[in-house]
């Protein structure tokens, strides 16, 4: 009797998480499937197989330009966010008091504010600064989101680092920057790599702030996908989505190889 009940519970439990698993991944699979549509409709299951929307993508100058914009903005965000997050996490490790602890909530806050409000706020501000629709404005906005992730990944990496190694280097007379480059850096390299990767993906996929801050010349892939969707539902958006999903997929695999998926998942 008890055993029977246990197996019913087990079956229900498995069915439950299996359903959610499908709920999470099926939409993405369907988007990829519709990118091979032979017609102009988003059919699933697809009525056939065709690569015509892929060639349409590569023939379209607007999409290619948006792709370049996304790369420029992603690269800028990666560099700035990785620098800001890593130095601050390193500094916080060396000095923890009431004032420096204040930095933590300020760094998290941008993640908790609806992106539309952040977008409006930054648009108003950058407009006043004369930076409206510049790459710089979008890079700084994305940095606001990417930095907390870098910061928390690096914080936990620095916490696991054996600081006696550093002290040993210092005792041997090396200056702290030399110790950082020769002793600390090799040990936290994979953490920095994962942070940079996450920062890049965050920037590549971010859309609401970019929608507010970009113009015709600086719009990114997600922004162009959104503007296209508002006019018509076309499989070309599925093509672009397939590329973006693949980039994230490769990014997750690389990050998981450098550390592990569990580590990354806990810090997102």
């Amino acid at each position: 009797m008890a055993l029977e009940r246990e197996s019913v519970e087990n079956a229900l439990f498995k069915a439950g998480y299996g359903t959610i698993f499908a709920f999470m991944l099926v939409p993405l699979v369907i988007v990829i499937a519709t990118s091979f549509s032979p017609s102009g409709n988003l059919d699933f299951p697809p009525a056939g197989f065709s690569l015509k929307w892929y060639s349409a993508f590569f023939d379209n100058i607007d999409w290619l330009r948006a792709f370049d914009n996304s790369l420029v903005i992603g690269a800028g965000t990666t560099v700035i966010a990785t620098f800001l997050g890593t130095t601050a996490a390193f500094g916080l490790e060396a000095r923890r008091d009431r004032w420096t602890q204040l930095l933590v909530p300020v760094v998290i806050m941008p993640l908790l504010i609806p992106p539309v409000i952040l977008g409006v706020t930054l648009l108003v501000y950058f407009n006043e600064m004369g930076l409206r629709s510049s790459y710089v404005s979008i890079i700084l906005a994305h940095t606001l989101w990417a930095t907390p992730l870098v910061f928390f990944v690096m914080q936990s990496i620095f916490q696991r680092f054996d600081w006696e190694l550093r002290d040993a280097g210092m005792d041997l007379g090396a200056n702290p920057i030399r110790v950082f480059v020769h002793v600390v850096l090799p040990n936290v390299k994979s953490g920095i790599f994962v942070s940079a990767l996450l920062a890049f993906i965050i920037s590549l996929q971010e859309f609401v702030m970019a929608l507010f801050l970009s113009s015709y010349g600086t719009r990114t892939i997600p922004v162009l996908a959104w503007t296209t969707l508002r006019q018509s539902l076309t499989p070309i958006v599925s093509v672009v989505s397939t590329f973006l999903i693949l980039i994230s997929l490769v990014g997750i695999l690389l990050a998981a190889l450098a550390t592990n998926l569990d580590f990354i998942a806990k810090r997102l």
Binding site: I20, F21, M24, L25, A225, S241, L244, S248, I252, L268
Partner: peptide
């Protein structure tokens, strides 16, 4: 993986 992939996919998709 089933939560990390959608998390790192754009809102638009």
């Amino acid at each position: 993986f089933s939560v990390v992939l959608p998390l790192l996919t754009t809102l638009v998709i």
